[in-house]
Design a protein around this nucleic acid. Structure first.
Length: 462
RNA sequence: GGCCUGGUGGCAGAGUGGUUAUGCAGCGGCCUGCAAAGCCGUGUACCUCGGUUCGACUCCGGGCCAGGCCUCCA
């Protein structure tokens, strides 16, 4: 079977063939760290975390690079507002970002390069662009990319230079030869953080850092470049112009962009102010619920944020964990049909909704088999858990999950619940059904669901 | 204005030229002291108008609607 990936460069699914057999080099645009991450950021990192996990599960050796933009206009502005050095601000939000992503079960990338630690590569690439006639220094000291010098400009976003030209704005005092030209190096203004360069003190533009860090880590040409769909233009278009202009080699083989998170049919974004930070959401929902919710829609489709959907995610996960509950440890097996279907779904451009559907089909089979053949059910359950791991779910102890309370909730302790269950057991022995039902109703009112079986009574929080 | 996505059942959300998505919710049954969980069964669907086809939700064209990019944005 062949893995197929929707390549945004050609607007179609293509067979995935890495540059070097058995190895995958992948770069994803990470965060600009001037604030807490919101659900839109969570989607990018979860989506590409699943890509990373699946490629590894498929046997590839994956080098996964996700950068951190730790110097830019917004960072400087925010640091000035707070009266602190910019690196103090970025440290705070890098730490917060790691906390959030770790909570969501996102594996750390192979490398997390920061712009401020790669000035040398950035400067070298800008110099190469100047040497090859793709860039120039303007009178104000800034260095700009000469878009007209790169005939293929627009090939990723499907825009023509002339169309862009019509709508382009010219900011006064920028010194660009052409309104479409973009800054590679920004000359320092008084009081701004600055680094030495052949063009005087200044700092790198946003686009060049990704080109420099990706190619220095992964080579002139690498396999996958990902990011949010809003980066297609101009960020990724500019990356292509910079990297191919500087190296003379093709830059990226497969471009992948994930769709937006929406709130009431509108893009969730900082500028619209309709965003929910990851930590806001994790105060009310468990990380795995958020992760599951993200994976219920295909990565290129829009994802509508709504608390009801998180509640639904919880119920769906309950069903998966219920199938795992109470089965002995076993080696994965007896589920080849489902494993094949799962892989087929993932091979089809990482179709996680389809892959999840396969998991539920496997669950039904486990529940059917369990009464007759617990050993077999256990092997199938182990397979379910292994597949879940590829999506980054189902790794908790089923009992712990099912008894787990939603974040931030209060209520009865486990001990109080167990005590009430004991009381009810006594009542049931005495066939005092009304008392038994009273206790069960009382617990139900507290969000505790009891389940009687021949093996005894189990409970869970709903 | 230019360019790009998408419009599926009560909700969410895949997919396919003629056959059950899946989850939640609903309904009937089994199980249960009664429930819950689970299992079995079941209903509601493919924006609109044309076209291609033996046959289209699925392909093509128009329309309507929604979202996005064209400026920082994951």
């Amino acid at each position: 079977m062949t893995l197929r990936i929707y390549n945004d460069l050609h607007h179609k699914k293509e067979n995935f063939e890495p540059l070097e057999p058995g190895k995958v080099r992948m770069y994803v645009c990470g965060m600009t760290v001037y604030d807490y991450c919101h659900l839109g950021h969570a989607r990018v990192v979860v989506v590409f975390d699943v890509v990373y996990r699946y490629l590894k599960a498929r046997g590839y050796e994956v080098t996964y690079v996700r950068n951190i933009t730790d110097i830019d206009d917004k960072i400087i502005q925010r640091a000035n507002e707070q009266g602190i050095p910019f690196h103090q601000l970025t440290k705070k939000f890098i730490d917060a970002m790691h906390e959030d992503f770790d909570a969501l079960g996102v594996l750390r990338p192979t490398m997390e390069p920061r712009a401020t630690e790669h000035l040398e590569e950035i400067i070298r690439m800008i110099q190469a662009l100047i040497d090859k006639g793709h860039a120039y220094q303007a009178e104000n000291g800034d260095v700009y990319y000469d878009v007209r010098s790169f005939p293929e400009y627009g090939k990723l976003s499907g825009k023509s230079i002339d169309d862009l030209e019509a709508g382009a704005r010219v900011e006064p005092g920028e010194g660009k030869r052409d309104p479409l030209d973009f800054a590679l190096w920004k000359a320092a203004k008084p009081g701004e953080p600055a680094w030495d360069s052949p063009w005087g003190k200044g700092r790198p533009g946003w686009h060049i850092e990704c080109s420099a860090m990706s190619t220095s880590a992964l080579g002139d040409t690498f396999d996958i470049h990902g990011g949010g769909a809003d980066l297609t233009f101009p960020h990724h278009e500019n990356e292509i112009a910079q990297s191919e202009g500087a190296t003379g080699h093709p830059f990226v083989r497969y471009w992948m962009h994930n769709g937006f998170v929406r709130v009431k049919e509108e893009k969730m974004s900082k500028s619209l102010g309709n965003f929910f930070t990851i930590r806001d959401i994790l105060a009310r929902f468990r990380p795995e619920e958020v992760r599951y919710f993200i994976l219920t829609s295909h990565y290129r489709s829009p994802l509508n944020y709504d608390e009801e959907h998180l509640v639904n995610a919880r119920k769906a996960l309950d069903r998966l964990y219920t199938a795992l509950r109470g089965l002995p440890q076993a080696e994965p097996g007896e589920a080849d049909k489902y494993v094949e279907a799962f892989n087929a779904a993932m091979d089809d451009d990482f179709n996680t909704p389809e892959a999840l559907a396969v998991l539920f089909e496997l669950v039904r089979e486990i529940n059917r088999v369990r009464p007759e053949n617990e050993e077999k059910a256990a092997r199938m359950a182990a397979e379910l858990k292994r597949l879940g791991d590829i999506l980054g779910i189902l790794q908790e102890e089923p009992e712990a999950w099912l008894k787990g309370a939603p974040s931030g909730s209060e209520g009865l302790t486990d001990e109080q619940i167990e005590a009430l269950i004991q009381q009810r057991l006594e009542a049931r022995k005495a066939k005092n059904w009304s008392e038994a039902d009273r206790i069960r109703d009382e617990l139900k009112a507290q969000g505790i669901v009891l389940e009687d079986s021949p093996q005894g009574t189990t409970w869970r929080r709903e």
